[in-house]
Simulated scan of single mutants.
Amino acid sequence: MTLLDPRIAPPRTLEELREDVVRRIKGNGYPGRGIRLADAAAAMTALTSLDPDEWASVWTVAGDRVVEEAERTTRPDEQRELFKTAFSTYTMGRFPTPVTPGKRAAYDKALAAYMRYADLLPQKLEVVRIPFEGAEIIGYFRKPEGPGPFPLMVQCGGLDFWKEQVADEALSYLPHGICVFGMDMPGTGQSPIKGDVGSERIFSRVFDWAETRADIDSTRMFMRGVSWGGHWATPVAIAEKDRLLGAINHGGAVHHFFQPEWQLKALGTREYLLDLFGARANVFGVKTLDEFLAYGSRMSLLIDDQIDRPCAPMLVMNGAKDSQVPIADQLLLLQRGDAKEAWINPKGVHMGFGAGWGPERTIRDIIAPWLLKKLAQHDSGQS
């Protein structure tokens, strides 16, 4: 576990952690969605310390059991769902980020289980590897049936919601004729770079790749970032204003989130399941709290008035009661720069969820209609 500065809330005790994990999974709460209660109970019973590799080990054992079940069944639908469950279980083992040997091993198993699940879906998943600065961008591409070319949405996840979950969300866009490229935001998952000023260039490289594909209509492209990943939608909307029909900042940071006052407030609570500081610090590749606070402040979009630069059309989304990213960041976006559209749930928490709004409804009722509206405006020659 990351050594904590006294300004950071102490971790849960072992008993508190066990109880909170089971409580969240009983309520299908994040980050336990998709994990079976019996598997969680067994893992928490086996957990005897707060050591991160023991945490990884008990979830890896649970995930291995689910994989064994999947390999025994002869029913394809059941096998597919079991591999998906195994992915969720291993993902809890690497949670929030794989920075120890045991967590890295759990993450490797999560990736393998996800691919076995994806191979059993009727919708093909293409693993894309794009050369990038001596390394590679690894992304998941899903497209509707037919030759295309299709409009494209590039989407990144956030702090611990990565491209595998994004690739599953992509299934909601295929019926609308939209293909999706899911990727990890800088500093997470398999991203080849850390989060830093200028890291939005990684998304530009993906749009370059899209222009080489006959099945993608590169005149009809979008960007969406969720949670912390929503931050990247704004500099991308600025950098790629001439290539994008729109960008969606869904609960992403702009300025206030990066300030020490907000970070110390967030890190002083135990709302997050475990090691929030370790996960956030890893995005930047720093170790100490002072390094993190100084580094984060560089990311503000108020520096050099970036927020005021011309940008692609934007949809700004969040909940007014968000405790992870202050709603003041979304209000800044609406008050500065080009005119933007917004969906703010007055009763919603992070990303606007709650009060009858969840991920599925938000995509169905807000995001997909906005994308389709922008496509229709483009096709009719409107700005």
Results as ranks from 00 to 15, higher is better:
225 G>S: 03
195 G>C: 10
350 H>L: 04
45 T>R: 15
296 G>H: 06
168 D>Q: 07
79 Q>M: 14
160 D>N: 08
237 A>F: 05
334 L>A: 12
141 F>P: 05
59 W>A: 09
134 G>F: 03
219 T>H: 11
122 P>A: 03
214 A>L: 06
365 D>R: 07
199 S>M: 06
358 G>P: 04
284 F>W: 08
186 P>N: 04
369 P>E: 10
335 Q>Y: 14
102 G>S: 14
149 P>A: 01
175 P>V: 00
16 E>M: 09
338 D>K: 13
353 F>M: 07
224 R>E: 14
207 F>T: 00
35 I>R: 08
111 L>H: 10
354 G>Q: 06
86 A>M: 07
368 A>V: 06
257 F>R: 07
323 S>L: 14
52 P>N: 14
371 L>G: 03
37 L>A: 02
140 Y>F: 13
166 V>K: 05
358 G>C: 02
335 Q>R: 15
239 A>R: 15
234 T>E: 14
219 T>M: 04
142 R>V: 01
90 Y>T: 06
371 L>P: 09
292 F>I: 02
34 G>I: 01
52 P>E: 15
207 F>H: 00
125 L>S: 02
64 D>R: 14
260 P>I: 01
55 W>Y: 13
94 R>C: 13
215 D>C: 01
3 L>E: 11
32 G>M: 03
120 L>G: 07
362 T>G: 09
149 P>G: 00
116 R>A: 13
382 Q>G: 15
203 F>D: 02
54 E>F: 13
224 R>N: 09
204 S>I: 02
141 F>Q: 00
127 V>S: 07
240 E>G: 03
9 A>D: 11
51 D>S: 10
327 I>A: 09
143 K>F: 01
226 V>M: 11
165 Q>M: 12
349 V>I: 12
22 V>M: 08
81 E>N: 11
159 L>I: 05
24 R>E: 04
24 R>F: 02
237 A>G: 15
14 L>H: 15
379 D>I: 00
146 G>M: 00
126 E>A: 12
258 F>M: 05
336 R>Q: 14
195 G>Y: 09
251 G>P: 04
346 P>Y: 11
216 I>E: 01
144 P>A: 00
243 R>F: 03
228 W>E: 14
296 G>I: 00
284 F>M: 11
324 Q>H: 13
25 I>L: 01
302 L>A: 11
31 P>V: 01
4 L>A: 08
174 L>H: 00
282 N>S: 08
130 I>S: 02
302 L>E: 15
237 A>N: 08
159 L>Q: 07
310 P>V: 05
111 L>G: 08
33 R>E: 15
334 L>P: 13
348 G>L: 01
253 A>S: 15
279 A>E: 06
287 K>N: 13
145 E>M: 04
310 P>G: 11
63 G>Y: 10
317 M>F: 07
